[in-house]
Design a protein around this nucleic acid. Structure first.
Length: 255
DNA sequence: ATGACTCCCAGTGGGAGA
């Protein structure tokens, strides 16, 4: 089973790249973030024509998530139950016996902003929900754009980024809290090249200079961990003419 | 360096992203 996550920064702009990528990288579940499309504008027909099913949850201009799947996703859940949230950030579905949660974590903007407080509240609610989801679905994957660089080795310039949003102790504590639920960072189950990033700023020639962050993640539950045989970041789409600022992260599960 | 780039909705600029 191949699982992948990709923040596409506008599905309207990136749809051809997503379809090309799926053609080259057959995937059982591709979680998308930042579709930036209201539900009536979601390109369901083009995705079906490419041989994929989809469930989606979006809004105009901002946010928006989807799961593109080979088989129909069941038990679809949109956003975190019990959290009063007007932003479309989560879509979950069940494929076979695997529960898949695709999420676009809040950015947080600045530590002294309301958006950072919202991020922390959202993270609290996510952890609460995951606790019960894991009890109901031991075989679970949480993947998406976490907007958290878990460790200094996930940051091209840890000194410049120290204490900045995406790297604060509070955010990293939340990431460790997810691991404490029994989730594992699939990327770190394997030897990886140093300076592995999933996002590069559009500015400052950041991709050409390989100055980025690893903020897109695939977390697998304890029950799935033994089956994970690989986890990689595919930099190729970042070299496209009009790329997303994020690259896809891919995990392979045996069996 | 309150920048840079890209996307969006707007409407000839500004918010948001990370």
């Amino acid at each position: 089973m191949k699982l992948a996550t990709w923040n596409v920064n506008s599905l309207a702009v990136r749809l051809p790249q997503v379809l090309d990528w799926l053609q080259a990288n057959p995937t059982d579940v591709l979680a998308l973030q930042e579709t930036k499309l209201s539900d009536d504008k979601f390109p369901a027909a083009a995705i079906e024509a490419a041989g994929y099913r989809a469930v989606w949850f979006g809004q105009k201009t901002y946010n928006g998530v989807a799961l593109l799947t080979r088989n129909q996703a069941l038990q679809v859940q949109k956003n975190i139950p019990g959290l009063d949230d007007d932003q479309a950030r989560v879509i979950a579905g069940t494929l076979g016996d695997v529960r898949v949660i695709g999420a676009y974590f809040p950015n947080g903007q600045a530590i002294d902003s309301d958006k950072f407080q919202y991020k922390l509240r959202w993270l609290d609610a996510l952890r609460e929900w995951l606790h019960s989801e894991l009890a109901a679905h031991p075989r679970l994957v949480l993947m998406g754009d976490f907007n958290i660089a878990p460790d200094d080795r996930d940051v091209h310039d840890p000194i410049a980024w120290a204490g900045q949003v995406l790297c604060t102790p509070q955010e990293r504590e939340h990431f460790r809290g997810l691991l404490a639920l029994g989730l594992h960072d699939a990327f770190r189950l394997f030897e990886q090249p140093p300076k592995s990033w999933s996002w590069w700023d559009y500015r400052m020639l950041a991709f050409r200079k390989n100055q980025g962050l690893r903020i897109d993640h695939i977390l697998v539950s304890e029950a799935l961990r033994p089956q994970v045989s690989a986890c990689t970041i595919d930099r190729a789409p970042r070299k496209n003419e009009r790329p997303s600022d994020h690259a896809p992260v891919i995990a392979t599960l045996e069996g």
